[in-house]
Design a binder for these strands. Structure first.
Lengths: 253, 253
DNA sequence: TAGTGGTCTAGACCACAAT
DNA sequence: TTGTGGTCTAGACCACTAC
């Protein structure tokens, strides 16, 4: 490895990245094995692995134990979790839309329990810490593969004794219709989008390598200024994209 | 390190993560040095480093060469890049809003040049590959620190000979006002939000460690169904969050 | 000068997949 | 059985920071 001031592992990563971008290595192609790369570049295995790890975290390659390393299919194959602002229906169920639109089955599992609000959750729901909330953990699947984790919180006071006390137990799916059923007509939703490396549990559930980033969304549903549900969403960034369409008001000032 | 089937580096990471979450290690606290951790857990340095790298990529710690490793300030301190749907003004300049709102100066640098559209860009702008476009690379700063990279593309045919041919050279800042000035009244914007590890150039520009994810946004401005500008945005995920507010139409079906 | 994290070598054994 | 990537050891030297 001719040095140019840069660390060797970055030079290896740069070279391989360029070969992928240039198309010398195409989607599905096998990347040379670690042993071959050690030879090709004249570096130790740790250097090769550091380079490959960087490329994996960039979403460019896919390592498979026992088989080898392959160039990933690029962006166009990523699924979109889209939020349609123009639909007449008040449903707000991007995952269902995304999966049904592709003729796939949409499935989820959930586990619900009553608990008390932490300080952070209380703040998001504009209630007091210690107030009762219903906490529900969801796992969404498409074609048997886990694609999204979500944990939602609702003030228990809001839904106690109503038909929707059981989160998704009834026939009504989606937060907006469920809230509609008890007279809470959701007016808007806020989403804070961020990203980070997955926690081990998330990496396992979503079947991604540790280091491959996840997109996190903190979503809160409001009836006017009152929050009625808040949830934390986690999806694998190398497989999914969040899409937004934002209307720009006209210049009639 | 008592083994429980899990790799040692995950156990070390799990233990340190728990100490941070529990508050035993608080924001700003110094994490034990690599040498101390090797001793504490009875593992080699590479194991300690793999654990620390995971925590860094999760945004939990901050490594500083020569000084040590420290627990990061958590989410609430992150800045928001917010998109206000309700403002009367048609400006769409989230970075300015975010920085001005905090009484900070907002600065940017840009470099513009005419070139031809690649296949991907042509598709996003609904023009033909090879058509002329104006490509502009922006760097946004807040308090001298780089916070956002952006590369925008506009069809040259749209702006040729107009006062806004020079991207941000005139007094008009922001895409919506600029387009307004030439009679193009932007009706909506689409954003595709994703995340990945940064490229070396991005890590350097944004002053983040390789492995700390960036949020990428592919944003396109439309006049009715016609795209008039598209851009790629990159921000450090450990410092910034994108916020959306989405109105939910009422159930009057 | 001492302590920190950054890079790197040369090995080793393991788990998994293909043959 | 062979080749792959996953984990791990025991070192080494360097660059940066604080004293």
């Amino acid at each position: 490895m001719a040095h140019q001031g840069k660390p060797a592992y970055q030079q290896v990563a740069d070279d391989l990245r360029q070969r992928i971008i240039d198309g010398a290595l195409q989607a599905g192609d096998k990347v040379p094995s670690e042993a071959e790369l050690m030879n090709d570049y004249g570096v130790s295995r740790i250097v090769v692995r550091m380079a490959m790890e960087a490329l994996q975290n960039e979403g460019l390659i896919d390592k498979q134990q026992g088989k080898g390393t392959f160039v990933r299919a690029q962006r166009p194959l990523r699924k979109r979790l889209s939020v349609d602002l123009y639909g007449k229906r008040p449903t707000y169920s991007p995952m269902k839309r995304a999966t049904e639109a592709e003729g796939r089955r949409s499935e989820w599992e959930w586990q619900s329990r009553r608990t008390t609000a932490t300080k952070a959750i209380a703040e998001r729901l504009a209630i007091e810490p210690g107030d009762e909330v219903v906490k529900t953990a969801y796992q969404f699947f498409a074609d048997e593969q886990p694609i999204m984790l979500s944990t939602s919180y609702e003030p228990y006071a809001l839904i106690a004794g109503t038909p929707v006390e059981n989160p998704e137990g009834g026939a009504i799916t989606g937060v907006v219709p469920r809230m509609d059923a008890i007279g809470q007509h959701i007016t808007h939703v806020t989403e804070d989008v961020n990203a980070r490396a997955p926690r081990p549990y998330e990496a396992e559930q979503l079947e991604i390598a540790p280091g491959v980033p996840v997109i996190t969304v903190t979503r809160t549903y409001f009836v006017d200024e009152r929050p009625v549900e808040t949830c934390d969403i986690v999806v694998a960034a190398d497989r999914y994209t969040f899409s937004y369409t934002i209307p720009i008001p006209s210049h009639a000032d």
